[in-house]
Design a protein around this nucleic acid. Sequence first.
DNA 1: TTGAAAGCGCTACCAA
DNA 2: TTGGTAGCGCTTTCAA
Lengths: 347, 347
Amino acid sequence: MATIKDIAKKMNLGVSTVSMALNNNPRISQATRQEVMRVANEMGYVKNWLAADLQGGRNNLILVIVDDASRPYFSRFIDIVQNRIAYHGFDLLISTTFNNHLDTAKRYLSQNRGAGAIVFTMQIDDDFINKCANDEFPIYVFGREVVGNENVYCQKEVSYYLSGYLSTNYLIEQGFKRIAYVRQVLSTLGTPRRFEGYLKALAENNIAFDEGLVFDVNRDNGKNIYDNGYMVTEEIIKNIQDKKIDAVFYSNDSLALGGLKCFSDAAVKVPEDISVIGYGDLPYSRFLSPTLSTVGSPDYASVYNYGVDTLVKAINNEDTSSVDEDYRELLLNAREIVYERGSVRRK
Amino acid sequence: MATIKDIAKKMNLGVSTVSMALNNNPRISQATRQEVMRVANEMGYVKNWLAADLQGGRNNLILVIVDDASRPYFSRFIDIVQNRIAYHGFDLLISTTFNNHLDTAKRYLSQNRGAGAIVFTMQIDDDFINKCANDEFPIYVFGREVVGNENVYCQKEVSYYLSGYLSTNYLIEQGFKRIAYVRQVLSTLGTPRRFEGYLKALAENNIAFDEGLVFDVNRDNGKNIYDNGYMVTEEIIKNIQDKKIDAVFYSNDSLALGGLKCFSDAAVKVPEDISVIGYGDLPYSRFLSPTLSTVGSPDYASVYNYGVDTLVKAINNEDTSSVDEDYRELLLNAREIVYERGSVRRK
DNA sequence: TTGAAAGCGCTACCAA
DNA sequence: TTGGTAGCGCTTTCAA
């Protein structure tokens, strides 16, 4: 592979001249520059960005670690984040923690492979994140609060618990009292927070919490999320009579999709026999039959963009604290709402 | 950020000693090694992989360029590819070409940002790919055949046309003759190939091709794929009577999902009034109501893995031609089949 | 307008 | 077992 040295030698020029010419430095004459470009092109020269970045002490990669790229939830996240990162002139190195990739992701993080990182998974614990972050490698964490390292940024006062509260409250308003809760373990912290919201809504409405109405989904069984939703729903169906279940709150839309199918197969009519609500407002949720009622934010983009902006500020050693006020307003606009659709009826 | 130089100075050791100790080189005594590790840890040392890679002349990144990471089709692809790439000890740099990211992706490619690249999008044309590939930067292309550069590898004799053929033939076998074809423009080459299969099946069964049965979907309208499926289906519904349409072949499952919803809203019963088949066997397709009949491969993983393996061989300057026989067998096993589900009836 | 040389942080060779 | 030094390919400073 040709290097600038080769070009310099061939043209009887200094390497610095070639370098400058290639970088459109105005100190090099038009004629020389064009000639260098021509020869470089002819020799198939490709700049070695490793060397350039090393020299410059820069590195325009941002590491993004998500749980499972194949879930629509994360797809949306990645799409928005990629846009914003590109807007700031950085590039994206994506790593997942789902299948067997956890080690790779942790390695990346501990190797500081990038100018900074964004972490959106529960598979990597707070301690590890705190250990990896430093002045030159700030980390932004979505979905939970991590404290203890000033180079770790996160969503403060995340209103996730609201979502569980909203859905449950909504179901109660529609007249339901025996609401099953499908909880996914090892998800982002959103899940436990949503569960808190569920409890809170029950308490406020003087409905006794029944442990037997909580159904856990464990994704470590190698099945996909839809199968898991289906399987947990089989359990629910077994208990419908006994426990008088009249509504189900799935902690995400993908689980709910599997659940809808299971109900359909078992001839349990949604929403006539049982009402169903999901969480996350995935792109396909309004195309299902029945359309899936869910809770989501009308403006995920703002929250995600805000995270990227904060990280970029940290990378550039700019002040990150001043934006807290903007953040508050942002959260207000991005506050989650109930999307009323066809899978919940009025009891 | 501490460097090995700093550690060496602090410990009164040579930089090479520190480097070797950090790399577990057996030439360094156990005692020294452990002490170096301890101090490195204490100083918060993080290896600069840019420098290491530059020195070693290596680079363990593989660039993966896909159309739109948010489509399940690509999620599955990325998941499989990531697994295999990790297995070979390489890392993954993902870039998309959908939103406004095309330029970034092309820049990566022309900058040879990695030890090699995998391209799975139609947005980058053959010429560009051929121009970017070279001895030190082989490219593997999925979904189409690119010729003209020995460093560009691709799926030869891709059997995509078969899939259009299979679905159409299947519909004809079930008794349908007026089969609408929903074609997505600017997709991978699979779409045009599938269209050829559609034509072939019609011809073999002596069914005249009717241009009016082809409905194009253009994704450049900013809508998501489900909306596009919905919208094109509105067009189809307008023509059902006139053109006596009795079945629809959507060129991918996501479009079909939008379509199913549209039919449902318009009280057109699937499969009673019209049969629907998709393509790609997405994870959620068997959870829809009705379950979506589709054509897919029982073994995408093999095909994708094979591509990765070939690329890695090329990167390591190993012989890539010898595996052609394995490939043939692989294609045989991965041959696409019809998944008969609920959205097609027997006429 | 051009070029020599230093140096980014690391590894590897060869010498001690 | 340890260390000095060259050099990966590039950019940048300073001098010519």
